[in-house]
Design a protein around this nucleic acid. Structure first.
Lengths: 237, 237
DNA sequence: CCTCAATGGTCTAACACTAGCCCAATCAAC
DNA sequence: GTTGATTGGGCTAGTGTTAGACCATTGAGG
């Protein structure tokens, strides 16, 4: 048992840095879509379990970086201005070199494990009609997505699988895993052939989950993520 | 996309509380076995990314709670005195009521997902002979375990699967998942028939991983964990 | 018996973070 | 216009946390 697995840093950084990361996560994953605003400072500070001062510092940093536009007064707030950058091979290379090979491999492995696990669990869970509807709805939304909103709805679809398991721990972990590859995904040019291929795989994932087949669900997610990884390798070589 | 999944608290508590939790994790999971000592304060503080003052407060708390025995001078240190309590149905009921039904279900679901995911990933990873040996070694150690060290070696075996994937994120997540059910596992009386059954399942898991069959690996882990969950339900009803 | 390296024990000054309070700006409703 | 609710902006006093230095204890080895 490697002690470093357990005796690792208790904190990833100070409260300010962690808050910036968390807000960036919400923005980049599209939890708060472009044009929408974050919850009011007082409310958000409570949700994040930090003081308003620290939250404001984080918001200020994101404002300076161009992710947010903060407006005062009633009906004001911190509005999301970030739109994912145009993808391209150059951007992809930059993201990868910024990450480092080890972190890249770690992130892809991590995502593979937790997303497959979530799909498997959901397929073994008895689902009421409400939950089935939500899952199908997310799939339909994604299939109807314009290129501009594709990534966001793709994220929403994948996260829905984890959230529908009813395990907050699992949902949070999948969100974390997704974030770690989001810069990569955003940098991959989206070709119609890839989108079509992904759509077929998404259908297979939903079908497996709805029919209660954990093995098919696992396999479908594994193939889907392996496809993304292969696409990455293709653009990098 | 549920905002609460992403906009959740950035910190589980203050540095002191988180440090206590982390050390308790190391002790209860047996990363530092009874009789052994923690790394020196200065070294451990660096590993955990906190100040020595905060670390000492946490160690002091664990000393007061009877988990550690701290001795000064050369060859001194913080020695682990904790030994897992004798299991029994009463203890189990207490642990479960302390957790709450939602947390219990969350923890079991989370563990199912991440451990199945880890096994699946490891089964799809080309393993060199060194890694194969480590896995078999952990299994042999577990099969040769005395009752007193069974839980610790069982943990070591399960964590080894995650660690061998080479993904620190995945390893840390599995350690976290394991910790969340460790009090439960420790409270389950160990009957020989259950140990024998578990041993068979462990063999199946290792066989599937070594033969590179992700589906069999996933299924074997799922069955194994489902067995634990069933055992739990049995003792609680 | 002495020495000395390794370890826990303690102190201080600086910085980070929090809770709570009040101010300033905005804009829909009247 | 005026008002009032809602929102961001800013201040202060108190607490949590850190880095670094120095002290105290222990025990193996000379």
């Amino acid at each position: 048992m490697n002690p470093l697995t357990v005796l690792r840093p208790v904190r990833a950084g100070n409260a300010f840095e962690e808050t910036v990361e968390r807000l960036l996560q919400a923005i980049k994953l599209g939890v708060v879509a472009p044009g929408e605003k974050l919850p009011p400072e007082r409310e958000l500070a409570v949700q994040l379990g930090i003081s308003r001062v620290t939250l404001r510092e984080a918001i200020r940093a994101l404002q300076d970086s161009g992710f947010l536009d903060v407006r005062r007064g009633r009906y004001g707030g911190a509005f999301v201005t970030y739109v994912p950058p145009q993808p391209g091979t150059g951007a992809l290379r930059k993201v990868v070199t910024d990450m480092g090979d080890d972190d890249l491999s770690d992130a892809l492995t991590f995502r593979m494990a937790v997303e497959c696990g979530a799909a498997q669990v959901l397929a073994t869970t008895p689902l009421d009609e409400d939950r089935r509807r939500i899952l199908r709805r997310r799939l339909d939304d994604l299939n109807a997505a314009t290129p501009a909103e594709y990534r966001r709805l793709d994220t929403a679809f994948h996260l829905a699988i984890a959230e529908l398991t009813g395990s907050p721990l699992l949902a949070a972990t999948c969100a974390d895993a997704r974030l770690r590859v989001s810069d990569l995904l955003n940098a991959i040019p989206m070709l119609q052939v890839n989108i079509d291929h992904a759509a077929t795989q998404h259908e297979a994932i939903v079908a497996a989950i709805l029919s209660g087949d954990p093995e098919a669900a696992r396999r479908a997610v594994a193939e889907h993520l392996e496809g993304t990884a292969a696409l990455l390798r293709g653009f990098l070589s």
